[in-house]
């Protein structure tokens, strides 16, 4: 057994001890993960979920004026808006507001392009459904959002 061989063993042992030292300190520090789903990590206020319509406070209807700016701004072509003008009212209102969430890239250009701030991001992130239809043609006019959504925020 020559000297360099012994030296190798010694360096190996030293690095083993160093490694174990790190393991021990990590064992004593609090865990960075949370136990989902019983606990959830806090969502930041700017979280970008799927889009949803914002209700007008005075009327309770969607604030949307069916101008189609969001649909034109969308890079993935996933918003379809059809609107008509009810009798005696100045503004148009949407009769159909459909989002194809399977195509959406969550870029937020639609929300930015809206002239009346009628779009907001949902806080809904745990998305799962029984079939594809639920997300490929989300009707945003029903209850203004997916039934899972609890709260919304305006940017």
């Amino acid at each position: 057994m020559n000297w360099s061989y012994a030296q190798n063993i010694i360096t190996g042992l030293v690095s083993l001890v160093k490694g174990m030292q790190v393991t021990m300190t990590t064992m004593l520090t609090p865990s960075p993960t949370v136990e989902w789903p019983s606990e959830t990590a806090p969502l930041p206020p700017r979280f970008r979920g799927h889009i949803m319509l914002v209700a007008d406070e005075s009327t309770g209807f969607a604030r949307c004026i069916a101008c189609g700016a969001c649909s034109r701004a969308c890079p993935s072509n996933c918003i379809q808006v059809i609107g008509e003008k009810p009798e005696g009212v100045k503004k148009k209102s949407p009769t159909l507001f459909q989002l194809d969430f399977t195509k959406c890239s969550l870029c937020g250009l639609c929300v930015e392009s809206c002239p009346v701030a009628a779009l907001a991001y949902s806080r809904d992130y745990a998305l799962a459904g029984p079939d594809r239809q639920v997300y490929s043609s989300m009707d945003l006019l029903t209850g203004f959002a997916s039934p899972l959504t609890e709260q919304c925020h305006e940017l």
Partner: peptide, 12 residues
């Protein structure tokens, strides 16, 4: 970054 950009990976 999520608190600023709104997404964790594909920031825009």
């Amino acid at each position: 970054l999520e608190s600023v950009t709104g997404s964790r990976l594909t920031h825009c």
